[in-house]
Design a protein around this nucleic acid. Sequence first.
DNA 1: GCCTATATGTCGCAG
DNA 2: CTGCGACGTATAGGC
Lengths: 225, 225
Amino acid sequence: MRLVIARCSVDYVGRLTAHLPMAPRLILIKADGSVSIHADDRAFKPLNWMNPPCKLREETVADGPDQWTVTHGKSGEKLVLTIEEVMHDTSHELGKDPGLQKDGVESHLQELLAEHITTLGEGYTLIRREFPTAIGPVDILCRDAGNATVAVELKRRGDIDGVEQLTRYLELLNRDPQLAPVRGVFAAQEIKPQARVLAEDRGISCVVLDYDALRGIEPDVLRLF
Amino acid sequence: MRLVIARCSVDYVGRLTAHLPMAPRLILIKADGSVSIHADDRAFKPLNWMNPPCKLREETVADGPDQWTVTHGKSGEKLVLTIEEVMHDTSHELGKDPGLQKDGVESHLQELLAEHITTLGEGYTLIRREFPTAIGPVDILCRDAGNATVAVELKRRGDIDGVEQLTRYLELLNRDPQLAPVRGVFAAQEIKPQARVLAEDRGISCVVLDYDALRGIEPDVLRLF
DNA sequence: GCCTATATGTCGCAG
DNA sequence: CTGCGACGTATAGGC
């Protein structure tokens, strides 16, 4: 990893055209050849960048500022840095990173809801999780107290996309005479107003899930018995 | 901006739980207090990060590795770095960045098209940009030569999502007797074949926009008059 | 301040 | 290789 602090201007031509005026910035050159340019704010997003695989060519211009050109192999995207003054330039050997270990939430939420399906209403029974269809698996398929089929789409954040997804499933499932009529439930820890409007307009009910409460059920049950 | 190369392990607790085993990495501490941790690959995404506004507290433990804790004000998210060995630690004054100048983004396209609405056909007149509905704003609402309402969905890259979006708007707008019947136009610099098929199947016309030509109209007009 | 759409989103996975 | 969904999405622009 090479860290360069330099006064530079940057021109990107690719999916769009962008320009950074001359200013001091951090230029990050990684072992895989990727380059990113950071300002002194915002943790996540670089001002400019080039994803691997790409190649950096440094050109020393006799009578002017150096020019660094980063070219992306496949897409032809290009990043041109004009380096006016280098304030810092160090390289460091880091080695391969062991990688991030995540503790998922989404799948856990599905487990919990499947386990406590009556959260959706009294008398609900689980058919199965990840019920397979031609256009992808339905998160949860179950039956309500009246034995009608219910398809559940589960999200951490309930957005319009999720309603669309559930709508597609419902359309497909309702063609199956074994299952029809199938009702839809849109369940999420948080449901956006727009998504709620769309869902209800389509006769899909919305359920806001309390993750901590759901998780809390289990210990309670264990404690009681 | 402070650049630290260090052997560290990281624990994030917040929207999920994540752990990074001990390894050498770059720790980037920016002027706004934000922190990001980078491995030696992938330009764009840090392994771990904390967005501003957040606060970094450095603790020296008497008989063990230092511990840095980054806390996010609002959400209570937390990032804990255990620093085993610091290989590099420098700070640099960068100042406020003049910022990125972009060209060719949707908002600009929208401006241009609204300004030259007859690009869609002779006799077209603009009703308004960002026409509000319950499920979100329609990019452009206008009337054609025959005074029929036309809803335009604008994208840089025309994908299936955009067609779905426009379809939702059309369904809603067509319920309004003041506006109905409303026709749909899907306009983009580039339209994916699948999106075109879907759009045309739904009676939505597709228009490929030439950004340079659109942009070129104005100077040309100015030149002519 | 909250809310929503956009993004050079990126990333990973299945078909 | 492409399409699709998830992401600790982040971030900018409105209200």
